[in-house]
């Protein structure tokens, strides 16, 4: 099978994730979309690794997974504490960071 199809899938997943980040307001969903984008990147890395025949891409994919896991920990913690104080998980409600 042509590995290019995997790249098409990866870009499709990335676009869906990006659109979700921009469109959805629920912080959890936004978070899941971010994960989707990260995984799309992983898929692309692994595909490139396969296409070029070296393992660099796969190593990077592992790094990404670790970073994503760490991010989930911190991010969920923030979301939970924001939800506790504001009773809302909408990202638009947290708009105090402006001049």
């Amino acid at each position: 099978m042509n590995p290019v199809y995997y790249l098409y899938l990866a870009s499709l997943l990335f676009t869906i994730g990006a659109a979700g980040v921009l469109i959805r307001r629920n912080a959890i969903v936004v978070f899941m979309c971010v994960e989707l984008m990260l995984n799309a990147c992983n898929l692309a890395f692994v595909t490139f690794s396969r296409m070029h025949g070296n393992l660099d891409g796969q190593i990077i994919a592992f790094f990404t997974m670790v970073v994503a896991a760490a991010e989930v920990v911190v991010g969920l913690a923030i979301i939970v504490s924001v939800f506790r104080s504001r009773h809302s998980a909408s990202v638009d409600d947290a708009s105090l960071m402006k001049l």
Binding site: A18, V21, L22, R25, V91, D92, A94, S95, L96, M97, K98, L99
Partner: peptide, 17 residues
């Protein structure tokens, strides 16, 4: 220029993308 900084994370994300 200040108006660009509206505090919505999604607006920042758009500019990032």
């Amino acid at each position: 220029l200040r108006k660009l900084q509206n505090g919505y994370a999604r607006t920042y994300a758009v500019s990032m993308f």
